[in-house]
Nucleic acid binder design. Structure first.
Length: 469
RNA sequence: GUCCCCAUCGUCUAGUGGCCCAGGACGCUGGCCUCUCACGCCGGUAACGGGGGUUCAAAUCCCCCUGGGGACGCCA
């Protein structure tokens, strides 16, 4: 028997989304933290789909969540498990709780319970079930639910891994439902059973779950098991400081993919929302695994900032492999702009890397390289401003000169233009913008020589000529 | 309403009693570079919510207030 088996259980974390919607920003960050913690500790990361709400859970959402995790590179060692397939297990635990007197049948109707809650509210107390059936010895029936027999007084406390000690008066808690009238288990019960069964050692989740934690601890106790360690990470807020929700626009992770963000930028951004390591901002995946720790998790909520995400994205775009970017860029291009030769995109990309904040932006900037010459759109104001009669004269003269040069690479072009401005005794500035407008249709573009090289002699000449009608 | 959590620049954060009249990053902004736009480089702007303690010393510890967030389901 080795030492590890003797005194160290392997760290086991899980991400437990409910497939009632897409994987959103907050969920993704929770998944990321759990994944990092497991990887850091050479532990196990489990994906568990909490689909006990049969009404709202769908297959499509499950797939969408898996796809999003895949995109972010969050691989799991076990699962996906589906709670909908584990009902018997939950029921056996509930049965155990009934047997041990920790749970009881209750025949109060939802309306009655609501009345109890309302009564409590009236008295300025926390709304809760009043325990009416607790000692009535009710038996199972078509309309009965099963409730936990929770302690009436005392406290339930735990040491949160990110927030420190947290405690609740048991009087704040009530005999919550474990099994619904239709015989299905509820969230709190299923979670606890699964975390016990799967050997989960650390639960990292949003701090909107803090209130569930004492309930779950009560269940662990009733089940005679020791609870795992809990760590509640703060919420991610929208710019208005409200819990991030659909009102704040795009919040599904895959929506960010569609907007042209790179997964490594997303991961880097998300991890820094609530976690820090000294003054560092940029982290590779390996660095993250190395440096991640619960101690460096912050305890206050943070606001999602697209600006910073975009900054990170532009950083990773600069660093990314060109062949990979080419593939991604293609996804953002209109069909008619996708070149037959993918190698052509790879020539364009280096010019755009320092300029694009997102791949979507890069696609926009790449358009003039890809569109047919005759269909190039010219910015009217730019044409009016820069294509003066004088400039047009230069352009046609330049066109006929370029016609005669053999190599159309940056160096030769630079040389050719050097001679031209020397002869004409003008500054390059004089012809630069007219040239740019003629070739690209706009006033902003990558450097002229590199742009011309990529475009090639024929297309440059064609464009120079077409502006002069 | 009740309970729980939180509180440093606009935003993300460093800071774990002296090294802090508070550091980094994004943003914004001045400049340099320059064929435009970017990149890059150099500089600037801007914060410890308030009040009481504790201490020789507090952004850091304690209390109160205020402010914000979350939870109060037979949803998860």
């Amino acid at each position: 028997m080795n030492i590890k088996a003797l005194n160290m259980t392997t760290v086991t974390t899980r991400f437990a989304p409910s497939p009632t919607g897409y994987l959103h920003i907050g969920g993704a960050r929770t998944a990321l933290f759990n994944w990092l913690f497991a990887r850091k500790n050479s532990g196990t990361f489990i994906l568990r789909v909490e689909d006990t709400d049969e009404e709202r859970s769908t297959q499509e959402m499950t797939q969408a969540i898996i796809d999003a995790m895949d995109w972010l590179g969050l691989d799991y060692d076990q699962g996906p498990f589906f709670q909908s397939q584990r009902k018997d297990l939950y029921l056996s635990y509930i049965d155990k709780l009934i047997q041990t007197g920790n749970a009881y049948y209750c025949s109060c109707t939802p309306d009655e319970v609501e009345a109890m809650r309302e009564a409590a509210r009236q008295k300025g107390l926390k709304p809760k079930y009043d325990g009416k059936c607790r000692e009535l010895g009710k038996v199972p029936g078509p309309d009965t639910v099963i409730r936990l027999k929770a302690p009436l007084n005392g406290q339930t406390a735990f040491h949160d891994q990110v927030k420190g000690p947290i405690s609740f008066d048991n009087q704040e808690l009530d005999d919550f439902v474990l099994q619904r009238k239709d015989g299905t288990p509820t969230y709190n019960l299923a979670v606890v059973v699964d975390d016990i069964e799967m050997g989960v050692t650390h639960i990292l989740r949003g701090d909107d779950h803090i209130n569930n934690t004492p309930k779950q601890i009560l269940l662990y106790r009733a089940l005679k098991t020791v609870p795992p360690l809990f760590g509640h990470v703060p919420m991610i807020l929208g710019p208005d400081k409200k819990k991030l929700s659909k009102r704040h626009g795009a919040l599904s992770v895959m929506a960010y993919k569609k907007m042209g963000f790179l997964p490594e930028a997303m991961v880097n951004y998300l991890v820094r929302l609530g976690w820090s390591f000294k003054d560092e901002e940029i982290f590779s995946r390996d660095e993250l695994i190395n440096k991640f720790s619960l101690e460096n998790l912050g305890s206050s909520a943070s606001v999602f900032d697209t600006n910073k995400l975009t900054w990170l994205n532009s950083h990773y775009i600069k660093e990314a492999d060109i062949a990979r970017l080419s593939g991604i860029l293609t996804e953002h291009l209109e069909d008619e702009l996708i070149p037959d030769d993918p190698g052509y995109l790879e020539k364009i990309i280096p010019l755009l890397q320092p300029r694009a904040g997102t791949m979507h932006e890069m696609a926009e900037m790449a358009a003039f390289f890809l569109i047919e010459d005759e269909r190039l759109v010219y910015d009217e104001k730019a044409v009016d401003k820069f294509l003066s009669p004088e400039a047009r004269t230069h352009l046609s003269e330049i066109a006929s000169r370029l016609e005669h040069i053999d190599s159309f690479d940056q160096k030769s072009l630079e040389q050719e233009f050097g001679e031209y401005i020397r002869e004409k005794e003008i500054k390059f500035k004089v012809i630069a913008q007219p040239l740019r407008v003629a070739i690209t249709g706009r006033t902003a573009s990558p450097g002229l020589f590199e742009t011309m090289e990529v475009l090639g002699k024929n297309r440059v000449l064609c464009r120079l000529k077409q502006v002069n009608g």
